[in-house]
Amino acid sequence: MHAFKYHRASSANEAASIVARNGEARFLAGGQSLVQMMKLRFVSPSDLVDLGSIKDLAGIKADGSGVTIGAMTRHAEVAGSAEVRKAIPALAALAGTIGDRQVRNMGTLGGAIAHADPAADYPAAVLGLGATIHTNKRKIAADDFFKGMMETALQPGELITSVSFPVPKRAAYMKFKNQASRFAIVGVFVADTAGGVRVAVTGAGPCVFRSKELEAALSKSFTAQAAAGVKVSDKGLNKDLHASPEYRAHLITVMAKRAVQSIA
């Protein structure tokens, strides 16, 4: 790890202004990806601005129509939250499967979606539920947020403050894990929402995406059988040691089927 300057910000504004002043500065949320990359010397930020002391950024608020989760809320808190479990059980369940116990105790919602790892779990929930991302500057719809491989709509210095998840009629997340990393080779979030059926897929492509084929089939009939009948195209899907595009495409159907099976 290269040397860097450490800052502890006490407010979102202060954090944003430190980052704005230092071109190579990065926000430090839970540090579960950034610190690892620094240790491997893949990235060498000049400054780290620790968001851990900013009280406003953490916490869970639920009302009848949705759940708003602060960007610095740890995965373990979401997984264990009675409110989330009641309003959107699939979201709490998803948070409970991220990484391992240590990761869940440190990792944050905001950090995970800002990092936008192609195999991360949270992006599937954010996109699948049609959530809204709140930043220190604006609101961004999930459909506009994830742009590509580790690329989001966030501008330099822009800080996620919270994410609002609308409550779906029913939803479920199924993932097939990489044996080694335990990241998703394919993760499928299926949500039957007020605005229709949404199916978000993580792990399979360079970036989380919605499967229009599955959404169309499940809109007609929200059954495991309908999902199983969809042949997902392998075009543009990831290829690595663990899974070919063809295998990933197949797994999308299987995971979607199993997700629906668990709630239909």
Binding site: N178, A180, L241
Partner: peptide, 18 residues
Amino acid sequence: IYDKDSGQLLTGSFMDYS
């Protein structure tokens, strides 16, 4: 697993070696 062309170790961490 080594890459046949470059000779790089592809399973060089616990992310890929299980």
